[in-house]
Design a protein around this nucleic acid. Sequence first.
DNA 1: GTAATTGTTATGGTCAAGTAGAACACTAGT
DNA 2: ACTAGTGTTCTACTTGACCATAACAATTAC
Lengths: 148, 148
Amino acid sequence: MIEFHVDRADSLPAYAQLVRQVREALRLGVLKPGDRLPAVRDVVVSCTVNANTVLKAYKELEHGGLVEARQGSGTFVTGSLGAVEPHDMARLRTGLSRWVAEAREAGLEDEDVKALVTAVLAEEPAAARRDAGHGAAARRDARQGAGA
Amino acid sequence: MIEFHVDRADSLPAYAQLVRQVREALRLGVLKPGDRLPAVRDVVVSCTVNANTVLKAYKELEHGGLVEARQGSGTFVTGSLGAVEPHDMARLRTGLSRWVAEAREAGLEDEDVKALVTAVLAEEPAAARRDAGHGAAARRDARQGAGA
DNA sequence: GTAATTGTTATGGTCAAGTAGAACACTAGT
DNA sequence: ACTAGTGTTCTACTTGACCATAACAATTAC
């Protein structure tokens, strides 16, 4: 059972933090299809937020096809996020870590790093990704609606 | 003279987009100390935003010690951001671009990429950077208050 | 069937951020 | 002095996020 935690100091709104945590848990395999999310009322207590806030998060996840709410029983994980192989994830993290160190050495602040990342992501949009197919297709096909 | 462009679809507020653009221009050397920023009213017209929005951006930059507003004359660049060498910046961008391609191939969505970047940045905070000094110190010392 | 547990909807209110419009104040060129 | 160009201030509106409360609806266990 995933444990939520909401940081009110974070600029990211509470409901969005919940969404993010579920998505990350899916990536890391902490949550799998069939798992149940904490009851709305539990999150209300544990995170000191309002039921509407939790609902908003759950709704957003449901809309993305990641979970399914069953009145009376709970909210269950139905979709997958193509759970990146732990090995791949580790490799990516190491690579990124190395790059970040390089960027910092060049004098970039965290904020600038984020800006650069955003710029690069925008610069090569989805369309460009089609050309890349080096066996990524299989892994991508295993995914479900979330990103759509 | 820098040219602003505001994307209202972006989740980032208009004033923040302006701030980011100035900071990026400083990094890239597009803006140098002494340069004048576009007049508030010009930005109002070219970006279809309100004077207050522009003011808010300029104020934030001024508060960061990057620019100085002189009533009646204009807003001028006074600080530097340690302008990353164009060569270094190009190298970083290429490296990041390569990494992003790899991440996408592994199935990560843009949102997840950003989350991972944030995580890595948080994981190795400023303190850890002191160990890295491979000649980065000189460049870092050339900077001014902006990041503080 | 009843009760407990769960998700859901509705109403209304608070608060902060972002934005807008109009008027004001300073500076420089003529 | 006048004027055009500049930054600045004031007030108010809109929106999104959030909270409080209450009632409703479906499922499950007894």
